[in-house]
């Protein structure tokens, strides 16, 4: 992220280890969107509308995968996610800050 982001890409992958790209404009279902991964520009078919700033899967992701952005884990896939799908709260949950799970654990014990 040290240099300028070249223009012309529709989405940006922050780190080469990431499962997702972040959209730099609203992406429409059915279009072929370009995304930048380091020095390369690649393309992906957009499976559903993705608002500006939201994430698109750039590969098929299995359920329970630790999803990476910034090269780090941002959460857990709660279902299988296809390449080109919108990655957000409907298919990813936090691993941290889960007082709800702590409460359930407490009841079981």
């Amino acid at each position: 992220m040290a240099g300028p982001i070249p223009t012309g890409a529709d989405a940006l992958v922050v780190d080469a280890k990431d499962h997702v790209a972040t959209s730099l404009r609203e992406l429409k279902r059915g279009e072929s969107a370009s995304y930048r991964l380091s020095d390369e520009v690649k393309r992906i078919e957009v499976l559903e509308d993705i608002p500006f700033g939201h994430k698109i899967a750039i590969m098929d992701i299995e359920k329970d995968t630790h999803i990476r952005k910034y090269g780090e884990t941002i959460g857990l896939a709660t279902m299988a996610i296809a390449a080109g799908a919108h990655v957000h709260v409907h298919n990813v949950e936090s691993i941290r800050g889960r007082g709800d799970q702590a409460a359930q654990g407490g009841q079981k014990a």
Binding site: T22, S23, P51, F52, G53, H54, K55, K69, Y70, E72, T73, I74, G75, V87, H88, V89, V92, E93, S94, I95, R96, G97
Partner: peptide, 14 residues
């Protein structure tokens, strides 16, 4: 969340 941030981990890393 409306702005695209899915989890606290993602927000923190940013």
């Amino acid at each position: 969340i409306a702005g695209g941030l899915t989890t606290i981990e993602e927000k923190s890393l940013g």
